[in-house]
Design a protein around this nucleic acid. Structure first.
Lengths: 195, 195
DNA sequence: GTATTAAAATACGAATATAGTAACATTTTA
DNA sequence: TAAAATGTTACTATATTCGTATTTTAATAC
């Protein structure tokens, strides 16, 4: 008998498939049957892993956030220059826009009685907290200026991610790479000249 | 009493709204109620314009194709150089990828019993035919080489649209504009030097 | 071979959602 | 004001979906 469900292939397959569908169409528009059919797994097997669709959604959300956190940490603790770290994080945020789909969240803010809204907010909060801890550590390590709120730093790194996806901005540059470099430099050095 | 329904504001509003929803989520995932709610129009009014969801879908599809055709014609008959015409058409095709959403079509190919599949194919066929006529006219007018099948021309203009959206290709150029110019030149002059 | 077990397929009832209609109220427009 | 258009509410019938129970099938252990 399988002891740890989370390592099961079918379990992972279900998570993957439902994430794809949820991301595209949102939570309520996707039925359990559809997920099972798409994943090639019977409904009974589904119910062996998840009691209902809501718990499935939580598991999906958990995995996405955890994966994002792992990526973030591996960058923060990598043996590269501070400028490179910022650059990597900025690039991560750019992809991150697609990490948690708007369609997926829409449903929960429209139907708060589902109870997933608060769950997501809790989970997000703890993830934030963990990232802030890493930022503070970086300040102690000296590669981030100590005289600024880490919350601001975190907020900015999110904003920069958004900027990268802003067409009005990117149209000012010849290539996406140019924009990344410009924003990274701004992020690391501000408007002050360096070197 | 309103004679021509297609000029009604509510009719247009319904078409617009349902197109947006169909495009994003596909046909079956969107309910009539949802469309009405989103459009701010009562269900009764909906049924005054459309007998059911299928006829609505046909109307949506019709309008999209017709609008595309109008744009195509205005370019073909515009008083600009042949190179500019090709360029405009290529640019039109680039947007055109989003014109008819994959999500929208998926449903009909998955559920052929809906009967919309054949309808769409018919409509597309006639649109093709009309565009081919315009191409032939252009050959007679002399701004397109006469010794080639217009079908090939049409096929190529579609392919070029796809190429513009190919990241592997666009990454070879500094800007999208560069790629458009390159492809347009290739389309108009082939690989032969000109001027 | 047979017994045992996990998973798939099928069927099913109950709850919910949706399509479409009808009767009546309200607003818009001429 | 009168006519036309639209909105509201309620309703029925149908279809979907959920979640469970039952039967089949397939694989594995004995």
């Amino acid at each position: 008998m399988e002891k740890d469900q989370t390592t099961s292939q079918k379990y992972s397959k279900l998570l993957m498939t439902s994430r794809e569908l949820f991301w595209k169409y949102g939570f309520s528009r996707v039925s359990i049957q559809e997920i099972c059919k798409e994943a090639g797994i019977s409904k009974m097997t589904f119910y062996r892993f998840f009691p209902n669709k809501l718990e499935l959604a939580k598991a999906v959300f958990d995995r996405v956030v955890d994966e994002g956190l792992v990526k973030f940490r591996s960058i923060m603790h990598a043996n590269i220059s501070s400028a490179d770290k910022i650059k990597q994080i900025v690039l991560l945020k750019r992809e991150g826009v697609h990490e948690i789909s708007q369609e997926f969240l829409k449903d929960f803010y429209a139907n708060p009685e589902l109870g997933l809204k608060t769950y997501i907010e809790e989970k997000t909060k703890t993830a934030w907290h963990e990232m802030l801890t890493d930022f503070r550590q970086a300040q102690q390590d000296g590669w981030i200026r100590a005289d600024m709120k880490p919350e601001l730093l975190f907020y900015m790194s999110q904003k920069v991610g958004d900027m990268l996806n802003d067409k009005r901005l990117s149209s000012l540059y010849n290539s996406p790479q140019d924009l990344v470099m410009e924003l990274t430099n701004f992020f690391v050095y501000g408007i002050s000249p360096h070197e």
